[in-house]
Design a protein around this nucleic acid. Structure first.
Lengths: 202, 202
DNA sequence: TCTCGCATGTAACGTGTTACATGATTCC
DNA sequence: GGAATCATGTAACACGTTACATGCGAGA
């Protein structure tokens, strides 16, 4: 399932321009798929070549011309055919988690900043999603939307409840678990030495 | 943060072969990052060229030679430097959610199968993760691990609690355990399948 | 027997990102 | 005045996947 197929799906709901499709990816679908102009426009061009979509050029007053795409009958068939294959694995690449994986090597203040920023992003995304009018969207969209809300809430809650484990007691107070070994005790005022020591191990 | 950097990070914890690094991506890190041999081996070669890692070739009895990589001092610096930049957005591409976005266009039985398969995947991943011995991993790893568990639980719970919204009540009334409720009748009240295709799948 | 695990790598291929190119209008 | 919105597109580039190539030993 590539950008082409998703464009086809979007067009199965109604006509749209490339620009409008891009906006959908930025808003409604941003929590599970992404696509840029550089992939959307070529995708629409290919779909046109294949006869799966067509477009009508619309001159506009004081605006660049628009190409309004609409799906063809062949496009609908191709799309449903694609949809009935079992979806492949989700692809995820989180620099955020990759960074925290090595959290104990970093200055606690930096880790705290990174986590705080991510919580804020989740909260912001949730606020936008909760403002969505569920009665005006399709059942599929509502389901996927709800999934996003559930996952973002869980993620934000986890970060809030557990950030102290990584940031360290010196910044936030009392004890954690047994003994986290790695995090050295830091003077309460100093930001962090960080890469001072050699920690060679094997 | 690309595969190269992650390899560097893994090697900052101790020496390893390319094969072992691949296994880590498949197990410990699979819920937030993925990498194949085709990206790992070239990454290690480049890191070697740049002087960020070194390796010692070890002949083995009845096994192919091993290249055991270890990080250099320059590698440690480069890695920490990379780590202190703010992580970029997570990249997610979920064919699963993209499919369900159009759930109402599909045969309910197919949607049900797709969701059931995904729940099973989450449960399986959770079982593997919960078997992890938290005392033997680093604080960073424990944190990321906990994040994964929290998110997978939320995802699985959402799917279980809401699948009926997409699949429709008529299919789920007998879902108890033993026998599959025959895909028998679809009363006029059932969600319209639109195009009930053969689904040559599974 | 045949598949899995160990172990390394290459090459072709596909896909997508980034930056560039253009240009009027509206909002702050 | 400068940024953002609307609107389309291209080209170079980076990155990663897939399949291929090799080969032995152990266990089912």
């Amino acid at each position: 399932m590539d950008v082409k197929t998703l464009c086809l799906g979007i067009l199965s709901r109604g006509e749209a321009t490339g620009y409008e499709i891009k906006k959908l990816f930025e808003t409604d679908y941003s929590h599970f798929y992404e696509a840029s102009f550089g992939s959307i426009y070529p995708a629409l061009a290919k779909l046109t070549d294949e006869g799966l979509v067509s477009f009508s050029q619309q001159a506009q007053d004081k605006r660049p011309d628009k190409k309004v795409y609409r799906i063809t009958a062949a496009g609908r068939l191709a799309f449903l055919d694609e949809l009935t294959t079992m979806p492949g694995r989700d692809r995820i690449r989180s620099e955020f988690l990759a960074t925290l994986l090595f959290g104990e090597l970093l200055a606690p203040a930096h880790v705290d900043r990174v986590i705080a920023a991510r919580i804020a992003e989740y909260r912001e995304a949730l606020a936008a999603m909760e403002a969505c009018d569920l009665d005006r969207i399709t059942p599929g969209h509502a389901f996927v939307h709800g999934f996003g809300v559930a996952v973002y809430r869980a993620a934000a809650a986890y970060l809030e409840e557990n950030r102290h484990l990584l940031v360290g007691e010196t910044l936030l107070n009392g004890n954690g678990n047994g003994h986290p070994a790695a995090v050295a005790s830091q003077p309460a005022t100093a930001p962090a030495p960080m890469l001072a020591r050699s920690e060679n191990r094997s």
